[in-house]
Write a protein that binds this DNA or RNA. Structure first.
Ligand SMILES: [Mn+2]
Ligand SMILES: [Mn+2]
Ligand SMILES: [Zn+2]
Ligand SMILES: [Zn+2]
Lengths: 139, 139
DNA sequence: ACGTTCCATGATAATTATTCTCATTTTTAT
DNA sequence: ATAAAAATGAGAATAATTATCATGGAACGT
């Protein structure tokens, strides 16, 4: 929490509230989620500040911006390489902290400088699986 | 091309043009890309028709809607399970038709009904890798 | 504590992708 | 040819995100 100053980020109450909400959060919240939660304790915060803060954190590599949900961006304070499950019905995103040992053939590496990979598993979470899970078929 | 009628899709000139453009296309075009290309031979086509057609095809499982590009949805007529590379700089998307043999532990399967998976590799394509590839760090 | 500099905030407008509405036209089956 | 059903397209509407910019507040050196 203190090291934000060190990376050239001013520590404001708004940012502290956002950081506090993100710290250890595994729900992969959207900007809207973050806004709504922070707003409870900080009613005057603006949406712009949420986006500004998220962008500042992302640029410094302190959070990840996930493109796993077709509707909106989701943010992840867990910056260690890991994978995700997304429920096609309720859109919940769950961490998969497993090493799948993805190795690509040299032939491919020659044509593309691979910097990383991310597996998205899609399916139905426990809750949605029970009561007849109808998804919309998107990937 | 004929089997569209069989699935309850009326065959219009607009749709034929879109289908023709998509057939065998491996560029993973966006709706905008499709619109611009089809427009050349079919100037009066509307954006709504492009979206309508894509949605109709998607609902019937004839194309995939990819969420790999943070900016926009990309469409893929190749519906066989496969993976993708995305260039962080020029956003080009390339197929990876390899089987990586992803097996998830039973423990996880118990808590989530996994219907499929998709690996996205990110990095720099040959063209962008040459001339000092600066990405924006998004995942 | 004070002052200065620079960055952050937030109200609001703008942009962009996508979806919706609905009157009109076209396809397809009879 | 006719009629029913579905598709088209112009445009409005929605939703997520980004941009503007005047004002306020942190940081830091004094
Ligand atoms: Mn995660
Ligand atoms: Mn593909
Ligand atoms: Zn669910
Ligand atoms: Zn590239």
């Amino acid at each position: 929490m203190e090291r934000f100053r060190e990376i050239g980020l001013k520590l404001t109450p708004q940012r502290m509230a956002i950081l506090e909400y993100l710290d250890g959060n595994t729900t992969h919240p959207s900007a809207e989620d973050i806004y709504q939660h922070v707003r409870k304790r900080f009613p005057m915060i603006s949406f712009a500040t949420v986006y500004n803060t998220l962008e500042a954190l992302r640029k410094r590599g302190l959070i990840l911006e996930l493109t796993i949900d077709p509707e909106r961006k989701r943010y992840d304070p867990n910056i260690h390489p890991h994978h995700h499950l997304i429920c096609l019905k309720c859109k919940s995103v769950v961490d998969v902290e497993l090493d799948f040992n993805i190795t690509v053939p040299e032939e491919l590496k020659g044509r593309f400088e691979i910097l990383g990979n991310h597996i998205e598993f899609y399916g139905l979470c426990e809750k949605c699986s029970e009561k007849g899970g109808e998804s919309d078929g998107s990937v």
